[in-house]
Design a protein around this nucleic acid. Structure first.
Length: 401
DNA sequence: CCTCCACAGGAATTTGCGGGGT
DNA sequence: ACCCCGCAAATTCCTGTGGAGG
């Protein structure tokens, strides 16, 4: 990979090691930037585990791309190493609750990742056992091969029910595990997530709360600089990084997006046959990054789901200063769009569900309102993405068949 | 406290599709 | 080739909800 020699022609004139600009790339410890305070606090919250004690349960809030998962993964890896030096066995399980959204899936994943069949007699089949059986096996795995288990629940707000949280957060005091102990790190990008929890879970799960603020322009600049090795020497024009950082900071403070923009800027330079990545590519790169991210978000949604979205988009474009649109307004326009496309419209009830799915994927946001005296109550929907971007994705890629 | 409106969303049910098993 | 099962999409029916004004 590092070698630039290729069967397909000249070595890459722009990128030296593009992997550095992949979001999945996990930097080494000294490359986490602008999160010193957060790392310190996190370490403090779970430090008891180092000597085999019970770590505090932690809830982390913050918008996307503020380093929540990154810091959690890093700090637990560090903890595992430090604990090993004390002869304490720590196991870390990372679960993406967006993928594993039900109780059973979550427990199964935790058990699977913490298990090591060479050390335990326990197997964790993919299917065929009951939820309580998964729990039983998980407790057994913990007791036989670990001193401390740490479970990172990413996108915890996407969990369908909080039974898992109840079980995990109370496992120790309920005597489910005896020779080991357990801690939970919950990650959410909804600040209000805690409000939706029931009291018992709330108090035991959020012994410590942290909020990760968005990165400011300086921090973003540092982060981008640390990845500048991805480019060949002298290729990256010196005003590119400040420009990307400024753009990203102004809009969202999302490091992931900032890195994406930088990568796209490089790709655009490549496509144009330029020998340098210049500032003028950045604006275009930002558009591209946003469009691509959004395309990914609605990939696989059905035609009708798109029509609904299109209706909302048209409304947003036509009324730039309006905040939200009611379901029925959207539905009327949606019916119109169906007619134009020559397909039967779905029922209002179904469209409600489709809109809810968009809200779930953070494409839109729903707000319940009340009109007041004898005016009824209703829900308003608002696009979270720039309508122009949505529009271009919706009209641009009509996938055949 | 009750009413009234414009919805929201739960429950039950139907329809259509794909993957095994025989 | 056939049926059965499970699943997801979609429909129909219906009860629930919020809050200003009576």
């Amino acid at each position: 990979m590092g070698k630039s020699e290729s069967f397909f022609g000249d070595p890459d004139p722009i990128f030296a090691d593009k992997e550095l600009l992949r979001v999945s790339h996990l930097p080494e410890g000294d490359r986490i930037i602008g999160r010193d305070q957060e790392l310190k606090k996190l370490a403090n919250a779970i430090k008891d585990a180092q000597r085999g004690g019970t770590p505090n349960n932690v809830l982390i809030y913050g918008k996307t791309g503020t380093g929540k998962s990154l810091c959690s993964k890093y700090i637990t890896r560090d903890l595992t190493q430090a604990a090993a030096e004390n002869g304490v066995k720590v196991g870390v399980s990372y679960v993406d609750c967006f993928q594993e959204s039900t109780e059973t899936q979550t427990v199964r994943t935790i058990a699977q990742t913490l298990n090591d069949p060479t050390q335990t007699d326990v197997t964790v089949p993919h299917t065929g056992v009951s939820t309580s059986d998964y729990y039983r096996r998980l407790w057994e795995i913990l007791d036989t091969r670990l001193d401390v288990g740490i479970v990172i629940l990413d996108e915890i707000d996407k969990l369908e029910d909080d039974n898992v949280l109840m079980q995990l957060s109370r496992a120790v005091e309920a005597g489910k595990v005896t020779d080991s102990t357990l801690g939970v790190i919950g990650i959410s990008n909804k600040i209000r997530y805690k409000d939706s929890l029931n009291e018992r879970v709330k108090s035991s799960l959020s012994e410590r709360d942290f909020v990760f603020p968005p990165y400011d322009a300086n921090q973003l600049r540092e982060i981008l600089k640390s990845r500048a090795d991805a480019f060949r020497e002298g290729v990256l024009n010196e005003d590119v990084i400040p420009k990307v950082a400024a753009l990203a900071a102004k809009e969202h403070g999302d490091a992931r997006k900032a890195i994406d923009i930088l990568r796209y800027a490089g790709e655009i330079a490549q496509a144009n046959g330029a020998e340098q990545v210049r500032e003028k590519f950045v604006d275009h790169a930002r558009e591209q990054a946003e469009t691509d991210r959004f395309r990914e978000l609605i990939r696989g949604s059905t035609p009708h789901s798109r029509y609904v979205l299109q209706a909302l988009t048209i409304l947003s474009l036509d009324n730039p200063n309006k905040e939200g649109f009611r379901t029925t307004t959207i539905y009327d326009l949606y019916e119109e769009i169906c007619r134009q496309n020559g397909s039967e419209s779905l029922s209002l009830r179904r469209v409600r569900d489709l809109l809810k799915e968009h809200a779930f994927l953070d494409v839109t946001e729903q707000t319940r309102r009340s009109g007041g005296s004898a005016e009824g109550s209703f829900t308003e929907h608002q696009l979270l993405e720039d309508p122009e971007v949505v529009q271009s994705v919706l009209t641009g890629d009509i996938e055949p068949e």
